[in-house]
Design a protein around this nucleic acid. Structure first.
Lengths: 193, 193
DNA sequence: TTTGATTGCAAGTACTTGCTTGCATATATT
DNA sequence: AATATATGCAAGCAAGTACTTGCAATCAAA
């Protein structure tokens, strides 16, 4: 990937984050990238091609790879906190906005499989973790896929809601949310300790 | 609200759901509403005015009012299931798509406070419910706002992810998710029963 | 029957959109 | 020195955009 093409991609993704795919114009992209508009079409087939090349780059999916969740201690509370923290460190409000900006119908059929990689990494890493915990006898048997979905939904939901409404919806801060919700997941409401 | 204006609003909201605000054209709206394009501008100031009038209508926010959550039995498991079920009954994939379609920067400053009403109703109803449960001695004291946020995040997250990726992300169905996650919230992972 | 309001219709305005073209210039490679 | 590649620049195109205007038809209230 030559430097000019990368500048174009970066500009395009940044604008899609701010304005959405449809409202992002090729003139905008060219200006922000500091190149002439016709250069976009020498490097890429069309506007859609620019953005699709962008999503294919890991850096534009928050660099959320399976390695991120490798650092486990086989201790439920601290490991769940680690999963949630690492996710929120990478899936910042900007990335949430980007993934919403990518949801134009002209694009979504092709972008969805790439966007979906991010939750998939979290979910499958967590499910694998639970399986190993069960086989180590550190967790009772359960519907692990469903359990992972509960925890991921909550992590995703909080991340998304914070990006959308900041603290106007709920005053609960990130650290507090992680600590408390992990306690709830592990011990439940009835035996909160 | 006269019949013509309502037809225009309904057409506009339906198109915003499918294509997003920016990609929805006034020609599209007129055609779907079955009126002439100039009629839109006799009834409303401009395109934005149509959509903002739409979000102000309860029917375009899923009719999610506080009454929806009034039917509690003061029994934790069944009540939490009721909260989640009622939310998911109303906030269908179509409503999730609509709320994403409304996130154009030209609009979001004015639409966000209205869109936010939906999560606010769930959150405050659930927090109030928890307070009453504690005072009835049916639940231990805890950080109730945070607990409500955990449960709402999870409900919202599952709803949103299902609308976005259907069952491609996780095979866990709605009823199973609700049942199992409520069990986790109440009893926790460690004393799953 | 007259009046007033609502709407359709056809045309048009000023502007923006994605994308192209032909040519000049700079820079790097041979 | 000769050549190839990358880019800028200026202009343009066809199509689409939100929104407007003037006039005629309809229809219900007076």
């Amino acid at each position: 990937m030559d430097e000019t093409s990368q500048k174009i991609i970066d500009a395009a993704m940044s604008l899609v984050k701010d304005k959405g795919y449809v409202a992002t114009t090729t003139r905008d992209i060219a200006q922000l990238a500091g190149v002439n508009e016709c250069t976009l079409f020498r490097k890429f087939k069309n506007k859609k091609d620019i953005v699709l090349n962008g999503i294919e780059q890991e850096k534009w999916r928050g660099n959320l790879t399976p390695d991120v969740f490798k650092n486990v201690k086989w201790e439920l509370a601290s490991d769940l906190e680690m999963f949630m923290t690492e996710y929120m460190n990478r899936i910042t409000p900007d990335f949430v906005k980007l993934s919403i900006g990518l949801r134009a119908p002209q694009l979504y059929g092709e972008s969805a499989p790439l966007v979906m990689k991010v939750p998939q990494v979290f979910l499958s890493s967590l499910t694998d973790y639970f399986k190993e915990m069960v086989s180590r006898g550190k967790m009772p048997e359960a519907d692990l896929e469903c359990l992972a979905m509960t925890i991921f939904s909550s992590t995703f939901g909080y991340t998304f809601l914070s990006a959308s409404f900041e603290n106007h919806l709920s005053p609960v801060g990130r650290e507090e949310f992680i600590k408390q919700s992990v306690q709830t997941f592990i011990y439940g409401i009835t035996q909160k300790q």
